[in-house]
């Protein structure tokens, strides 16, 4: 019991001391619930996601964290039996109000998935996909956007000579960074990451965690992870979800060393999950 706690606390201590930022909510959930048919997967969650910082959502599998994440950019709309209640407020509007333009929303809230899913196209076409959708046709402009995004996702050096080759030829870690570049190319404000490193080897995982630290500040990042050490390593704020309910939310430093709720402590110390 103690060793897990020690590991986590060690991870927290090892972090580079981030400059203290003021808490400015970028996204707010108020009594927000998600239903699959009749069962409530996310139960009346009330939460503020701070801007420019990394928020991690942790919890045992099946607790609704992926569901909550996918609700933010309304990816749950793709599932026919899914419905939501309550408010999810972004930029002053409820994301789930009927006249919200989902396409525009998804351009401002990007997503990276668990398993890297580059399109079977060239590296260039993958990153340029988003900008092309928005109507940008100028070749020079596209090239500039592609380079910028690949630089920002720390992949440029590795692929700059193979932009016109099939993206599926890259390694797993490279593919995931490509997906991150692809998401960044449309210039989102929030970047959602659904267990982005769980399918990768430790080296690639470390690189992506470094990347997250670099992206912080320019983007608001919300990451779902079942790996507690990862959450302890990278996040500024952490939310603990258990069976759909938000048990605790607070600065990662505090949550991992002196959690308020007993359930949080049990989870962190490995008593369950």
């Amino acid at each position: 019991m103690g060793s897990l706690m020690t590991m986590v606390q060690g991870a927290v201590q090892k972090r580079p001391q981030a400059p203290v930022q003021e808490f400015r909510p970028h996204l707010s959930a108020r009594d927000f619930s998600v239903f699959y048919g009749a069962s409530e997967a996310v139960k009346k969650v009330t939460l503020d996601i701070p801007a420019g910082q990394i928020t991690a959502i942790i919890g045992p599998s099946g607790c609704g964290k992926s569901t909550f994440l996918r609700a933010i950019n309304r990816m749950n709309d793709l599932i026919p039996s899914c419905a939501a209640s309550g408010k999810l407020i972004f930029d002053g509007h409820n994301v789930y109000s009927p006249n919200v333009d989902v396409i525009a929303l998804r351009q401002r809230v990007g997503m990276v998935f668990q398993k890297p899913n580059p399109f079977p196209k060239t590296v260039f076409d993958n990153v340029a996909y988003g900008p092309r959708l928005q109507g940008i046709r100028n070749r020079a402009k596209l090239a500039e956007i592609v380079e910028r995004s690949l630089v920002r996702s720390a992949l440029w050096e590795e692929v700059k000579d193979r932009l016109r080759q099939n993206a599926l030829g890259l390694s797993g870690g490279q593919q995931q960074r490509l997906c991150i570049a692809r998401a960044l190319a449309v210039n989102p404000e929030i970047l959602l990451m659904d267990e982005p490193t769980s399918a990768l080897d430790p080296r690639s995982t470390a690189r992506i965690e470094d990347l997250m630290g670099e992206l912080r500040g320019a983007y608001t990042i919300v990451i779902v992870t079942h790996n507690m050490q990862q959450a302890a390593r990278v996040s500024d704020y952490t939310a603990f979800l258990y069976e759909g309910i938000l048990v605790e939310f607070g600065p990662a430093q505090r949550l991992f060393t002196k959690p308020d709720d007993k359930r949080t402590e049990d989870y962190i110390t490995g008593r369950f999950g």
Partner: peptide, 25 residues
């Protein structure tokens, strides 16, 4: 599903997803 999700998450309409990603694949 994964390729379709990636396209939708980038803000593509259904028509664009099908024409630009699914059909070529």
């Amino acid at each position: 599903r994964e390729l379709r999700e990636a396209s939708y998450a980038l803000g593509a309409t259904r028509a664009e997803t099908v024409v630009r990603v699914v059909i070529p694949a």
